[in-house]
Nucleic acid binder design. Sequence first.
RNA 1: GCCUUGGUAGCUCAGUCGGUAGAGCAAUGGACUGAAAAUCCAUGUGUCGGUGGUUCGAUUCCGCCCCAAGGCA
Length: 315
Amino acid sequence: MIVIIGGATASGKTKLGAELAKSLNTSIISADSMQIYSGMDIGTAKVSDIELGVKQYCVDIISPFNNFSIVNYRDEAECAIKEIESQGKIPIVVGGTGYYISSLIYERKYGRPGDNSDELRCSIKEELIDEYNKNGIFKLWKELEQLDLKSALKIHPNNVKRVIRALEVIKTYGVKYSEQDNDMQYKRDNFLFYVLTSNNRIERTIRINDRVDRMLEEGLYNEINELLSYGVEFNMQSMQGIGYKEWQQYFENKSTWDKTIIQIKVDSKHYAKKQDTWFNNKYPYAKCIDVELGYAYLFDTISDDIRINKENGML
RNA sequence: GCCUUGGUAGCUCAGUCGGUAGAGCAAUGGACUGAAAAUCCAUGUGUCGGUGGUUCGAUUCCGCCCCAAGGCA
């Protein structure tokens, strides 16, 4: 019984979600892997609750010094959903991190069959990383081939993170990575899923470039300096975000200001394309709406659709 | 005006001791079960500045021309 709005970066999700939430007198749950970090505002295009006129969950919930994963997100978001629903309202999930959205749609264990100690998992993971640093990835991939052939065939040997993760799962839990969550069961009966698409690459490129320029005007560079002055480092998970990671080259005198800005724009475009691929291919049942049709059209169409579903008792 | 260096893929450049060419980036498509704004995979592309000559054959050697950068006047 939730409404989900997904879409690529700079598609206007946030504004649309907020207006819908206002009209339904409800709150928003963000599905964004970078807005979870506090102190990272400009580069993640955060808008405050006050400015939006709506309460947002899953924003500013962790410090940039900490790591975060999909399981943490799912737990936080499910908690927020319960809270909003307990008020008799319809939660609206808004975000561009499709992987996170999936955690609210499907019942999944994410490789964790039980409640085994996390310490064991971490120490095994560290061993695997050591092994990788010493002997490279191919040996680990061959080991995966022995332990879990299906995963090995599916995971490319160059994909270090995935190879290590698959080995980590089987070594920690004794269960094959490939045999987790095969069923893809839905975890809730009803949800409305809207995807904001853009068939016009040129328009989108302009929107993305403008957005990056606006971030700079709003003080992105100062934000980076501030984070660094607090001791945040470029190798932290939080600093892998677009608009942040690109500055490492600049601070190490390996890139110029202009090149850094261009890189942020290029990375943003790549990201938008990746999001498109995900949203287009993972949710065939979602309703796609072209953002080029204009904000008013989007708002009216989705509002009507929600209202009809409500009247039919679907929500 | 003279000298030098360069003109090769959208960009930066490599290369061909003469047999019509390649890397990186970009572009395009895709995968993704505890890092997902992460990680990974796949795919083109070219009148090799123009024009004559030598040659079985020139992007490669030679002449002339055009363009760019630097130097000398």
